[in-house]
Simulated assay, not measured.
Amino acid sequence: MRQAGVRSLRTFAVLARTDASGRRAGFEESSTTGETPADAEALRRWSIVHEGADANADTSVAESHLAVVGTLDVHLGAKLPGEILVGRRPFADASADASADAANDQYGFDPLAVVDPPRAYVFNVCVAPEFRGRGVAEAMLRVSYEYLASRTRAAVVYIHVERDNVSARRAYEKALFSIESEETPEQSASAAHEPRILLYREILRASPAF
């Protein structure tokens, strides 16, 4: 992530309880803080907060039978490195983008250069195949939204999705994301990937998450 220019990063995860044989059953929402872990074992070494759990309890036994079934990352910055589509919101101070672009041209990409108030980008949304369609992505999106609303000054959160990924688009629409822009055929061809759409959701501190 550092080599790609992403440093202002937070990772969120969903954990599923397993029985002694390792079979998964259900899931519970969790969030993690810090930089993206290298693997699931690293995730367990972080401060994982389980919804409804006693913050002072010894979780070593409880976590010994948990498996990571979904993760997503959140980046605070004017743009997400490697993506063609760049968010336009908030509209309040367009000069902030021009200043960031000028600094980038002179000094190279600065992932901490943000508009004021800043933007957030959700990326690397991953859900275990057997847990897809069970609300895992929606749960992670809700928790990450609540984090952005309560712990950051971000005014809007963005997410890129392939145009033809119907299931992912449905999950993001359920999480109240709307389309802002779409790659042109020329842009997607030059990037050698399927056409993508950029969706956004404004962050309203006075409203519930969903």
Results as ranks from 00 to 15, higher is better:
M1S: 09
M1F: 07
R2Q: 15
Q3E: 10
A4F: 14
G5C: 03
V6W: 14
S8E: 13
L9E: 15
V14K: 08
T18Y: 06
R24I: 04
R24Y: 06
A25Q: 11
E28F: 10
E29G: 07
S30L: 07
T36L: 07
P37V: 02
A38Q: 11
A38T: 06
D39Y: 00
R44V: 09
R44G: 13
R45W: 06
W46I: 08
W46S: 13
W46A: 13
S47R: 15
V49L: 10
H50I: 04
G52P: 01
A53P: 05
A53C: 03
A53W: 14
D54Y: 10
D54T: 03
D54I: 00
A57W: 14
D58N: 15
T59D: 11
E63P: 00
E63N: 10
H65Q: 13
L66R: 08
A67F: 04
G70P: 03
T71A: 09
L72A: 02
D73Q: 14
D73C: 07
D73M: 07
D73E: 10
V74P: 10
H75E: 07
L76K: 10
G77S: 04
L80V: 02
G82I: 03
G82H: 13
E83I: 01
G87L: 04
G87P: 05
R89H: 08
F91A: 14
F91V: 01
A92L: 12
A94W: 08
S95H: 14
S95T: 04
S95L: 06
D97H: 12
D97W: 07
A98Q: 08
S99H: 15
A100K: 10
D101R: 15
A103T: 04
N104G: 08
D105W: 04
D105M: 09
D105Y: 05
Q106A: 13
G108P: 04
F109W: 15
L112M: 15
L112K: 13
V114N: 15
D116R: 13
P118R: 06
A120Y: 03
V125K: 02
P129K: 15
F131I: 02
G133P: 05
G133R: 07
G135P: 06
G135N: 05
G135F: 00
V136N: 03
A137E: 01
M140F: 01
L141M: 03
R142N: 01
Y145R: 08
Y147V: 00
S150D: 12
S150G: 09
R151W: 06
T152G: 12
T152K: 09
A155Q: 12
V157R: 00
Y158N: 05
I159R: 10
V161P: 03
D164H: 11
D164V: 01
N165C: 06
V166H: 10
A168H: 04
R169L: 10
F177H: 00
E183N: 06
P185H: 12
P185T: 01
P185R: 09
E186I: 00
Q187P: 06
S188A: 09
A189D: 05
S190P: 00
A191K: 15
A192W: 07
R196Q: 14
L199G: 03
L199S: 01
Y200L: 04
R201W: 03
E202W: 04
E202G: 02
I203L: 14
I203N: 08
R205N: 08
A206K: 07
A209R: 05
A209P: 04
F210K: 01
